[in-house]
Simulated scan of single mutants.
Amino acid sequence: MTVVATEGLTKRFGRVTAVDGVDLAVPAGSRFGLLGPNGSGKTTLVRMLLGLVHATSGSIEVLGSPMPRAARSVLPRVGALVESPAAWPGLSGRANLTLLDAAGAAGGLVNRPAERRRRVQDALEQVGLGGVDRRPVRAYSLGMRQRLGIAAALLRTPELLLLDEPTNGLDPRGIGEMRALLTALNAAGTTVMLSSHLLAEVETLCTRVGVMDAGRLVLDQDLDALRAPTGRVLVRTPDPDAAARALGRALESRDGDRLVVRAADPADLNAHLVRAGVAVVSLTPERRTLEQVVLERTGDGSDRVGRPGAAR
């Protein structure tokens, strides 16, 4: 079952094509990461999924219903954070969530004050704001605002979470906490779809990856399949000269005590080296990194998918 499906999805702003013929399928129960450089169309795509931007052409289904036509029945089942978190700056975080929860009562939430207080407190605790005081949101740090935005997305116990750059503004500990929270929510049945320009964030959290470039979806695949073994083995040995002689043409490259060897079976390779009297410190099957895959698919450019600290 897919919880998000698009076919030929296109959005043009005048002469600019922001999203270009995207066919996307997000499996239920997955943690789906949408990668791409700034300006690749990620945020526009997410906004179309939520009915905030109407497509020029193509179709969208979210939770099995067409969007934006079925927005009234679909959106109460979706939690979302798109771009910067929205809030009433003069109110506290708790007051903000209480007002949002009251608005959500029309979508089927219980309207009793005790239930509302419980939902708000649960959401605050989930994102690490359980002890939040009465300070207005305008006094919050960027990280606290981000946590509050994610708390708002969790108020309705959503079946689907759509998050745009969810770790923006968080410190390393906060990023780890958010990763643990999203993994736990996913394990409890929530499908998580996040967009990011940070490779490390997606590689650590997600089970499936989509890559956008210049408005097109250039890759959509399970992360395990993307990072399958390359058929090479990385060998470390205190006697690289003896290892090189024993390996012959199977040796592809060498850097000090580290050797890259073409080998179908690491166990057979290890046995061969041991029989040749070569000591082996470590022997690891080589896998492609997500960075290698993304760079292959997106080509060259000055504003590309990057590691933490790269320009947004």
Rank of each mutant, 00 (worst) to 15 (best):
T6F: 05
E7S: 15
E7Q: 15
G8Q: 09
G8E: 00
G14L: 07
R15W: 06
R15Q: 11
G21T: 06
D23T: 01
L34K: 07
G36D: 09
P37D: 02
K42T: 04
M48D: 06
G51M: 04
V53N: 08
G64T: 09
G64F: 02
M67N: 10
V74G: 05
P76D: 06
A86W: 00
A86D: 01
S92A: 02
R94T: 01
N96M: 06
G108A: 10
N111Y: 05
R116F: 04
R116E: 00
V120C: 11
Q121Y: 06
L129M: 01
Y140D: 03
G149H: 10
L154V: 01
L155T: 00
P158C: 14
P158R: 12
D164C: 02
L170K: 15
P172S: 06
E177D: 14
M178A: 12
R179L: 06
L181H: 07
L181W: 07
L185W: 03
L194M: 04
L194N: 01
E201W: 03
E203N: 12
L205Q: 07
V211M: 07
A214I: 00
A214E: 08
A214G: 12
G231W: 01
G231P: 05
R236K: 13
P240L: 08
D241R: 13
A243M: 02
A244N: 11
L251F: 03
D255M: 10
R258S: 15
L259K: 02
A264M: 01
P266L: 08
V274L: 13
R275V: 05
V281D: 15
V281I: 10
E286D: 14
D303E: 07
R304K: 05
